[in-house]
Design a protein around this nucleic acid. Structure first.
Lengths: 247, 247
DNA sequence: CCAAAAGTGTTCGGAATACACCCATGG
DNA sequence: CCATGGGTGTATTCCGAACACTTTTGG
């Protein structure tokens, strides 16, 4: 307990700090990484892009795409850099999900990582290099990973499941032109449920956010479906504030 | 571009790293802080706990409660430590919200901060010390803050607005026994809207998660309302998976 | 008896669900 | 003509929104 006088004279209780650099330098520092959970969709399954771990101790284990943050690099930029370096893609959906800070999560000492979720169109995408056996894995088949990457992947998958129901993210995983069947397959793959086809279509029809571009599917062994684009412009204009208690 | 042979021999393309400590040590390190946005509710308004900034350059400005992370301290623990040190409270709701990493966000050099949102019962709580003029501020009246703390506060407020509609967090801000009026005032204060009293009551009645404890409000200048507790146990048991596309 | 807020029900419209039939295409 | 999935409509149920009167307490 401090003397009473200190508590009752708030204005003068302590000298202000002037040397902020010295202050900051007096504290411990931590190496920071970003890890990107890059999801893709092949029309059937939700996929994630992984590499083999570089580390001897995780030999053979799969790992997320990540890197250490550079000096004075904002982490959004670092994640974007990882994405661009590994996939060659720019203009990709990317969002911060969560920071993982267990002191022993990295075998080389304390390393803090910020997880990012990224969605990219698996078709529009040529893997730039195949270093470290970079390739797509079915999300549901992944059992074990290097570091705490399985936990990070699970967190991002759950984040995506929730997010896709409230925001039009999913279109980042589809070609620009897509059929309603493809869209429904995407939702079913991500959410892990079966949806009623007619109600699904009605739902999206009622939203009024799909543009019928007057084209049809090609080369399908059955009646071809119409192709649509998502009306991002209209969505941005009408973004609504939703109030509704529900838990 | 690497030589083709490297790309087509994935198994042996690069030696595995054995000295992970050296690897980690070869990268830049960053000081880490946690900042706690501690919300409270006085029955009327949503409040947040702030102090005057320690720094000369932010003299007079308000600041969130935060601190640098210690060596090998998990950030959840660091946030909890800040909370406990400053308020004396334990057993407090705490959740990580987002990491802020702009390189110039701190005047003393690069400092990365992880924002936490905390909810505590303003009544059950005696401020342990009043160092740095620690006290409660009405969230809506805050205009300017030290560092990027206004941005962090806004982010956490929005996070809370969304979160409270989907999870029973709000009860952390109320006394253990509360009236429906208090509960409604809480929702209105956080969401910044007016809600219909009858529909609000019906909503919570239908959930079946409020326990009527058979007590009444005391010392009110009008008809006293019933007091309730929230049935956390039942909520945990029936937590449901919600599927419903809506954006 | 007056003020103030508690407590309660009904009606209405829109959305989610469940469900069945015809249509277009390729083989 | 058959297999496959596309495209559509309807009945029912449920939920949220709007809305008004009576009751209880303190002053």
């Amino acid at each position: 307990m401090k003397p009473k006088s200190v508590q009752t004279e708030p204005a003068a209780q302590r000298p202000l700090i002037t040397d902020v650099k010295a202050l900051v330098n007096s504290y411990p520092r931590v190496p920071i990484t970003v890890d990107c959970v890059i999801f893709g969709f092949d029309g059937e399954e939700l996929k994630v892009l992984l590499i083999r771990s570089d580390l001897e101790m995780y030999k053979g284990k799969w790992s997320l795409l990540g890197d250490f943050a550079e000096d004075n690099e904002e982490l959004d930029d670092a994640a974007y850099r990882v994405l661009k370096t590994r996939t060659g893609m720019t203009n990709v959906y990317l969002d911060q999900v969560r920071t993982f800070s267990k002191p022993n999560r990295h075998p080389g000492g304390r390393v803090l990582t910020v997880a990012y979720c990224s969605l990219l169109n698996i078709q529009h995408h040529e893997l730039k290099t195949l270093d470290n056996e970079l390739h797509w894995h079915s999300v549901n088949s992944i059992k074990e990973m290097a570091f705490d990457h399985k936990e990070i992947l699970d967190t991002c998958h759950q984040w995506l499941q929730k997010r896709i129901q409230e925001h039009p993210l999913g279109f980042n995983l589809l070609p620009e032109k897509f059929s309603l069947r493809e869209l429904q397959n995407l939702y079913e793959a991500i959410l892990g449920v079966q949806l009623d086809r007619r109600n699904f279509r009605k739902k999206f029809a009622a939203m009024g956010l799909l543009i019928d571009i007057g084209e049809m599917e090609q080369d399908v062994p059955h009646r071809p479906g119409k192709l649509y684009k998502f009306n991002f412009q209209k969505y941005e204009k009408n973004k609504r504030k939703w109030i509704g208690i529900d838990f």
